[in-house]
């Protein structure tokens, strides 16, 4: 693998019917890097993640994951190769227990569910261990987000895509979620993060991509952007 990017996008466009939601996006993510995409509602951030995980049908341009083109590849096959997408709105399985949710995260992993992996996932989020027999639909929003992340970790991510993990959560819960994101970064997991909260995003990433109206408006080191105060002008046009 060497220095090959984990993910590379070249002139990617994505459509809903005739509506172009992502236009000419080119982006590379290197091993171990955390890249964050920020931008206002409707900027195409979520659509970009969906294009990468191949869950929307109409995507043009070249997407390469770990060196291989993903054109025509089924989403399941990408998951089996460690491209794990934690979707917007958590999307847990409410009528299954917490434990069943976590186990299903290992569905695509060869060898299936391993006890030590389940334990490791629950060690990260001790609250989930307490509630393992509870129906996932009865968890609070923050716990559901933790569950969605624990479930994703069961898939042994090589590239983890997190879509707005802070959405609708109390600041305290957000910082707990990001503490875990930090741990994952420390372990060398490559992360593609989508956030609306620019401040959180910049603090928790190496590089930041600013999107608006489906296009990339700016890319740069997160630290520089954080210092420069450029964001407000780019995102909000002030």
């Amino acid at each position: 693998m060497g220095h090959e990017p984990v993910l590379s996008l070249q002139k990617v466009c994505a459509y809903y019917g005739n509506l172009c939601a992502v236009r000419d996006v080119s982006l590379e993510i290197n091993p171990g890097e955390t890249v964050c995409i920020i931008g206002p509602n409707g900027a195409g951030k979520t659509t970009l993640l969906k294009s990468v995980s191949r869950v929307i049908p109409k995507v043009e341009g070249a997407i390469r994951y770990r060196g291989a083109s993903t054109a025509g590849v089924a989403p399941q096959a990408l998951v089996a190769h460690g491209l794990i997408h934690v979707p917007e709105g958590r999307q847990i399985f409410p009528s299954m227990t917490v434990e069943e949710n976590i186990e299903i995260g290992a569905f695509a992993v060869p060898g299936g569910v391993r006890k030590d992996k389940t334990d490791a996932a629950m060690d990260m989020f001790p609250k989930l261990r307490e509630r393992r027999r509870q129906l996932a639909g009865t968890l609070s929003g923050g716990e559901q987000q933790m569950l969605a992340m624990a479930r994703a970790l069961m898939g042994q991510p090589h590239l983890l895509m997190l879509d707005e993990p802070s959405m609708g959560l109390a600041p305290k819960v957000v910082s707990e979620i990001y503490r875990q994101v930090d741990l994952l970064r420390g372990r060398g997991v490559t992360i593609l993060l989508v956030e609306q909260n620019a401040r959180i995003a910049l603090r928790n990433s190496d590089r930041t991509v600013v999107m608006a109206s489906g296009e990339i408006r700016h890319q740069g080191k997160s630290a520089d952007l954080l210092a420069g105060g450029l964001i407000a002008s780019l995102v909000f046009g002030k």
């Binding site: 995980s53 869950v55 989403p75 399941q76 998951v79 089996a80 794990i84 997408h85 934690v86 979707p87 999307q91 847990i92 399985f93 409410p94 009528s95 299954m96 299903i104 995260g105 569905f107 695509a108 479930r151 898939g155």
Partner: peptide, 10 residues
Amino acid sequence: INHYAATLMG
């Protein structure tokens, strides 16, 4: 339960 989430689980 959730078609979309199941797809994302492989």
